[in-house]
Design a protein around this nucleic acid. Sequence first.
DNA 1: GTCTATACATAGATAGAC
DNA 2: GTCTATCTATGTATAGAC
Lengths: 209, 209
Amino acid sequence: MKHAGFQSVIALQAPETEESRRTLVILTAARLFRENGYERTTVRELADAVGLRSGSLFHHFRNKEEILVAVMANGIQSVIDAGRDLMARHAGPAARLEGLFRLHMASLISGVGGDAMHAMIYEWRSLSPSAREGIRHLTDQYEALWQQAMDDAVACGLLEGDAAILRKQVLGGMNFSVAWYRPDGRLGADALIDAMLRAALPELMSSRP
Amino acid sequence: MKHAGFQSVIALQAPETEESRRTLVILTAARLFRENGYERTTVRELADAVGLRSGSLFHHFRNKEEILVAVMANGIQSVIDAGRDLMARHAGPAARLEGLFRLHMASLISGVGGDAMHAMIYEWRSLSPSAREGIRHLTDQYEALWQQAMDDAVACGLLEGDAAILRKQVLGGMNFSVAWYRPDGRLGADALIDAMLRAALPELMSSRP
DNA sequence: GTCTATACATAGATAGAC
DNA sequence: GTCTATCTATGTATAGAC
């Protein structure tokens, strides 16, 4: 089969910039990693899924690990950005905590963001020590947002206990939902987020119906 | 290097039954899977770690997946057994919930049980559909224990909300601790379990110091 | 920037001697 | 029950033409 000719036609219709092609690979990789896991996803499968031959991937990425790093960095960075925006728009500890919670759950459930979060949760052991350090730097920033919100909530009496452990428990409970939540199950996305919020942080909801 | 002679000496000192050798492989595999992940652990590494040549493993297990299944089934079964024993010894919803919580955390933190739990959490996607079904049958039994305790706690007013979601949130928060807990960190094992219990189920602790 | 072709390593698994 | 030896397949990554 001739692939070059096919590619030319596509190029005429929608010229791909270097950046958009790279992004397509990253988003597709995130989806495949979620479906089959990083180790069981081959570069050939990924190449097929984006309409390339396997060798061509290595023009965009030095190796397979660099793709995983890009998937993770891409995903966590967008949640950090949204989280900072949220912290800037809301002042009270209750509103901030609830906002971060809903943002995190929405990221996990949504297709694009969820794929990247899934990789963050399940595939970090496949990173080399140096790559792990780079991703760690990003997750630290995200956790700092949560830590601040938790500290404020404890300081004003909204929550009780060890703020760091509370943060771990709440985030862990959310993250694990990627292992069991099914969009076609008993709860839809919105109902799930509400129910999870009530379960994890009932203090936030006690003044509501 | 001659291996047969070495094996003979060992056999004279400590004759290994079929069962104990199989158990050694399972426990060693659990540890290696935790350290390096199932996909990145080779049958050669596992064989080396138990003092065998790679081909010999396939006398005890049909294939690599069967080892993973044995690791998981072994681990979850021991927690189920301990959980049922606990439910039989305690009657009240509060004592049962706290008991299940401490049992689960202790299993996660302990070396042997923790390795198997780690595999349950991280490697279930490496199972074939049929193997996944078999393991699912076991996890269903374990979750049923929790569901019963949660239902009772909600029924008697100890907890509020959706019992199934509460269970998912609490178990998820615990399970995720394998990703961040370090025994040499700020909290020792006992302090961690107490802090996690306060964070996840503060209702159980409100009547205590 | 993509393709074709392939190098090179390593994986899981098997056969048969002992 | 374990070893030695090996098959076979599949993986990542590279080289060079276009």
